[in-house]
C-alpha cells in the first residue's frame, strides 16, 4: 500500500489569520525567537500498490483542482510518503 503526501499553503502574499494568531500566541507561552508563522494543510492519500509517476500525476491534479483553492492557495509539494516506492515530486 502506497501513500501520497500533499502540502498546501496559503499563497505568500495572502493574509493568513491562523498563522497570525499562532505567532501572537507563541511568545505568550514562552516560545521566543519565532517572528513569523504561516499555517497550511497536509493531505495523505492512500493507494493500492506502489506510488508510481502516474499516481503522483493524478494526485497533483486532484491537489490543484479539489484539495486546494487556486485563488488563494498553492500546492507546494506532492510526494510519495517515506519508504514508499516511486519517483519523488
Amino acid at each position: 500500500m502506497g501513500r501520497v503526501v500533499i502540502d498546501v499553503m496559503p499563497k505568500p502574499e495572502i493574509l493568513d489569520p491562523q498563522g497570525k494568531a499562532v505567532v501572537g500566541a507563541l511568545p505568550r507561552l514562552g516560545f521566543t525567537g519565532f517572528t513569523g508563522v504561516r499555517q497550511g494543510k497536509r493531505f495523505e492519500l492512500e493507494v493500492e500498490g506502489e506510488v508510481t509517476d502516474e499516481v503522483l500525476a493524478e494526485a497533483r491534479k486532484a491537489a490543484e483542482t479539489l484539495l486546494s483553492n487556486p485563488v488563494i492557495e498553492d500546492v507546494v509539494s506532492v510526494r510519495a510518503a517515506d519508504g514508499a516506492a516511486g519517483a519523488g515530486a
Binding site: 496559503p10 499563497k11 505568500p12 502574499e13 495572502i14 493574509l15 489569520p17 497570525k20 485563488v71 488563494i72
Partner: peptide
Amino acid sequence: TGPSKRPAVQVGDPFQ
C-alpha cells in the same frame, strides 16, 4: 522582486 503574483485576493480576519 516580491513574491507577489498580483492581483491578490483580500482575506479578512474577523477576530482582528
